[in-house]
Design a protein around this nucleic acid. Structure first.
Length: 503
RNA sequence: AGCGGGGUGGGCUAGCCAGGUCUAUGCCGCAGGGCUCAUAACCCUGAGAUCGGUCGUUCAAAUCGACCCCCCGCUACCA
């Protein structure tokens, strides 16, 4: 059976580099990583992309404030985002920076293509321009009609720029969105739908003059390509569009994972751009919620933004990953507090999951010198049957959850499973009864845990796997193998070590 | 304002779409007990909510409908 391996291309939004990464950036990457790793585990050929958005004119200002050259400034910050990925074990296959040549030339190519297809025309844009900020302001940016930054009234000016005929694509885009599960979840789909229906699609200004940082419009270098158009292109430029091998293999994207704030660009503008260029459309726009800190929105100015690197000084990578995946409802906003983190990790990851793993292995050493015992008749014992059944079902229950991107709920299934395992031990009391059946099943339950935790807690999963003294890694056996009793009697396990420590 | 989502024991939360099995789930916390293999872990029991309010549909509503109150999100550049 040599079925062609199914491919799976997932992207995160690319991050603005006008500041250092915060918890929200990390959250998105962790979620994408879990999805990517899970898809690898079920056997798909995964390509996982993340990166940075570096062509925004705002970078100029931010750089000036930091007292650095723009290039120097964005290099420094982009590096920080790359380090973030490494530090949190994000398994991205590539990291695209939009200032790279490979991106810029595709950005220009796409723009040229839209132009060639008659979807870009020159007109004039008028708006309120703040010379201090060097950018247009909208009404709501202003405080008492003044730029809050400079305290000056922006001037009403008019300039030539290029427009994209977004309006032309209203119908196909609407049809696309009405299609089931293009935008996930439903809630976000309704928001966009409502907006298209009430406002309709207006042509979009896609070039800016008066700025010096950015990508030139290919046929008119006095203008820079609008950052959003440029940014979205990263999803194909990173694959080597138009004729790169990776592009041929992985495009269209299966999932664009984004925050709710940029849904419009991904669900409306991006498809319109692709339609204009005759490029196939992505399959799903997956919209997650935001993290709040103590109930407040993340805000750099209020100082509520949390530095993920600081977190690592106090907590282990997998503790943070566990909390983010488990406590933040994937499709909703979720609150971060250190108290909640500590509680969740100590109570659930350490107390339940970790403890079960540890006590199982300890029991095997205490009672059987590290050798998995030969079971007698677990097929006839009611308690045993129940747990074996849970082992068998867990991967498929989680699969249902994960196919729907219910990352948090899938992980809850793991926690519930561990609780059941602990109860089972309590009832069977193998330390008293010396019942070999209980431990035979438990050691297999530990193996199940190692596999299902693999996407969430890659390094802990590996530790558990090694402790069980199993060959290779979970991915060599695949997701569904988690449902079996693959550890046979006579197998020797290693001495238990603590995997999850209390914090 | 328009559109969308939500209000469930002290905190968080499941259930609501397909009404009865909800005498409402689970976690944290609290009170008591058990066990002692385990990282003072784990297990059991208990107290605690009439499911935002009012009215209605129905033999039957947390679940459906109407109205009201409150919270949140989206409405062109914040993951």
């Amino acid at each position: 059976m040599s079925l062609k391996q199914e491919k799976f291309y997932i992207t995160t939004a690319i991050d603005y580099v006008n500041a250092y990464p915060h918890l929200g950036h990390l959250y998105e990457k962790v979620c994408a990583d879990i999805i990517a790793r899970w898809n690898r585990l079920v056997g798909r050929d995964v390509y996982f992309l993340t990166g940075t958005d570096e062509n925004a004119a705002k970078n100029e200002r931010a750089a000036k404030e930091a007292g650095l050259e723009v290039k120097e400034f964005i290099d420094r910050n982009a590096k920080r985002f790359q380090e973030l990925c490494k530090a949190f074990h994000i398994s991205n296959d590539d990291f695209i920076r939009t200032t790279e040549d490979r991106h810029r030339k595709v950005s220009q190519l796409i723009f040229a293509k839209m132009f060639k297809n008659g979807d870009i025309y020159k007109s004039s844009y008028s708006g309120l321009y703040c010379y201090g900020c060097e950018e247009y302001k909208t009404e709501k940016d202003l405080v008492d009609g003044k730029c809050p930054e400079h305290g000056t009234e922006p001037e009403h000016i008019e300039e030539e720029c290029y427009f994209f005929k977004l309006s032309k694509y209203e119908k196909p885009v609407l049809e696309l969105i009405e299609r089931n599960r293009f935008i996930i979840p439903e809630k976000r789909k309704q928001e966009i739908l409502a907006r298209i229906k009430t406002e309709g699609l207006k042509d979009l200004a896609v070039s800016r003059s008066r700025i010096s940082w950015g990508v030139n419009v290919p046929f008119d270098p006095k203008h820079k390509i609008y950052v959003w158009v440029d940014a979205l292109v990263n999803y194909v430029s990173a694959l080597g569009y138009p004729d790169g091998e990776k592009y041929k293999k992985y495009w269209p994207a299966d999932v664009h994972l984004i925050g709710k704030g940029i849904n419009w660009f991904h669900s409306v503008i991006w498809p319109a751009i692709l339609l204009s260029c005759g490029i196939p459309l992505p399959k799903h726009i997956l919209v997650h919620g935001y993290i709040t800190i103590g109930g407040e929105k993340l805000s750099k100015s209020k100082g509520t933004a949390i530095d993920p690197f600081k977190l690592l000084e106090k907590y282990e990578v997998d503790a943070v990953r566990y909390f983010l995946a488990r406590d933040i409802p994937f499709f909703e906003d979720g609150d971060f507090t250190e108290k909640a983190l500590v509680e969740r990790v100590n109570g659930e990851l350490v107390g339940n999951i970790g403890n079960f793993i540890h006590r199982t292995l300890t029991l095997i050493w205490n009672l059987y010198a590290g050798e998995v015992p030969e079971p007698k008749n677990y097929e006839k014992d009611e308690e045993c049957i129940k747990l074996v059944e849970s082992i068998r079902k867990l991967p498929s229950i989680m699969r249902d959850r994960l196919e729907n991107y219910e990352i948090d709920r899938a992980l809850k299934e793991v926690a519930d499973f561990a609780i059941q395992c602990n109860r089972f031990l309590q009832v069977k009391e193998p330390w008293k009864t010396k019942d070999p059946d209980a431990l035979f099943i438990c050691v297999n339950a530990v193996r199940t845990l190692a596999i299902v935790l693999r996407p969430y807690l890659p390094s802990s999963s590996e530790k558990i796997w090694k402790m069980l003294n199993l060959e290779g890694l979970p991915e060599d056996y695949g997701w569904d193998s988690a449902g079996g009793l693959a550890i046979k009697p006579g197998h020797r396990v290693s001495r238990p070590e603590i995997v999850f420590r209390k914090i």
